[in-house]
Amino acid sequence: MTAQNLTTVEVRMLRAESRKRALQDSWTLWKRNPVTIAGTLIILSLILIAMVAPWLATHDPFDQILADRLFPPSLDYWFGTDNLGRDIYSRVIHGSRLTLMIAFVVALISGPIGLVVGVLSGYLGGMVDEVLMRLSDIFLAFPKLILAIAFAAALEPGLTNAIIAISIANWPSYARLVRAETLAVRNSDYIDAVRILGAGHLRIMIYHLTPMCLSTLIVRVSLDMGTIILIAAGLGFLGLGAQPPAPEWGLMVSDGRNYLVDQWWVSTIPGIAILVVVLGFNLVGDGLRDILDPHQRQS
């Protein structure tokens, strides 16, 4: 069966068919793994908590009652209070919004950049490819955290700049991935067919290559969510991320480190919050890898 014998419509139908089957397989695999289910539940509850945070919180997350500082967990303060007498429970609840926001905004910035660079590089090849890939090599040569620290320190510290810094550190690996994917399909029968049907380069890149790379990219970005959250928390911990009084979890761990011995809850509770959320993303990511792994599918 060669490209010439198929119309675009037929190609689309075949692809839709196979996609549907893949989806069904994935569903079965997902159901089979309790670990993945647990991860999904964690992420769903995080989203839910973030949505209704103001109703869940029992206190104003910014309100300081200095006389009540460093109180242990109690009926009044479920997770205790911090060094400025703020309710840790309410701060952790409100912090979920920041965490989600960071993860999604970074994904929304670095994903598209990686996509554009990767498709251009892979489809056009030649000098464009060479220049873009050497550029991404340079960025890839820096460990992510170090690059993020460099940019966060260079720009003024703050949540926005932390997001920019992490995005700068993230796009090259996406560009690599998309490029590889583009290379794989660039010379496929399908693209040949589209070209013969008269599509221009721009059209091919936007309407055909981009959608084909998108699913791989989305999977990869979702695998990275945990790392993104950890880097953001690390920046917060080093004082290069969110600024006080923001209830960002990394910042809260950092604020509480001086009290760890006698008031363990101040930094332990936001620490656990980070752990649970990142674990949620990683569990789902682990499951996703299984689903995408052909060896697993066969058995």
């Binding site: 003024e156 510290p157 703050g158």
Partner: peptide, 9 residues
């Protein structure tokens, strides 16, 4: 609005 800055800044 608080800006927590490292000494270099």
């Amino acid at each position: 609005k608080i800006n927590t800055l490292v000494s270099a800044q």
